[in-house]
């Protein structure tokens, strides 16, 4: 009886700890930006999902490629059909870990962090280390990151006609407002 009670208490306690330790955003912002002589190319999505494990500092992102919206319909078409091949590789993801993570980072004011993990885009997985920030801002847990990726690294071939016009590196910006994930 005592043993059963002990197990029950243990299960409930660990379940609560598990629930409290996670943070989620279903509307994380991710953008691609490339400066070209003709015009700036900017694709933005507000529909990425991110989960941050407050116990371990592990962080995950997933985004559906077709949720990236561009100012021009043609750019969106090219992005999905020619470059990302969104019907073949519908989702991109990142799974990583915050370096030197400790729980105080979740309650302290925004500070610089470094994240290392695997970025999968266009079906190609690469290990990257990117700078970012994490901390409380206006009572919310906020995360950001800015880094560059080379489309070529992910097997994305840019036709030679426009290769010179699109920068070799694309700027990626990430902004997340996390909420405690209690379920």
């Amino acid at each position: 009886m005592l043993r059963k009670l002990f197990i029950l208490v243990f299960v409930v306690a660990s379940a609560t700890a598990f629930g409290q330790g996670k943070f989620i955003s279903k509307n994380a912002y991710i953008s691609f930006y490339s400066l070209t002589p003709l015009e700036d190319i900017l694709g933005e999505s507000n529909e990425a999902v991110s989960i941050l494990n407050g116990e371990t500092g592990e962080v995950g992102f997933q985004a559906i490629m077709t949720t990236f919206h561009f100012r021009r319909a043609l750019m969106e078409e090219h992005f999905n059909e020619n470059y990302m091949e969104s019907s073949k590789y519908p989702k991109s993801k990142f799974n990583g870990k915050i370096e030197n993570f400790n729980k105080d980072m979740l309650t302290a004011p925004v500070a610089d962090i470094k994240i290392t993990g695997q970025l999968t885009v266009h079906g190609v997985e690469k290990t990257i280390t990117v700078p970012g920030t994490l901390g409380m801002q206006d009572g919310k847990l906020v995360g950001t990151s800015k880094f560059q990726v080379a489309p070529e690294d992910y097997g994305i071939t840019i036709p030679s006609v426009v290769r010179d016009k699109i920068g070799k590196q694309m700027d990626i910006t990430v902004k997340v407002n996390y909420l405690p994930y209690g379920k």
């Binding site: 279903k26 529909e47 990425a48 999902v49 997933q62 985004a63 559906i64 077709t66 949720t67 919206h69 519908p90 989702k91």
Partner: peptide, 12 residues
């Protein structure tokens, strides 16, 4: 419809 990622995404 944009597909499924924890929830069904519809935009715009």
């Amino acid at each position: 419809c944009k597909g499924y990622l924890m929830e069904i995404k519809v935009s715009p």
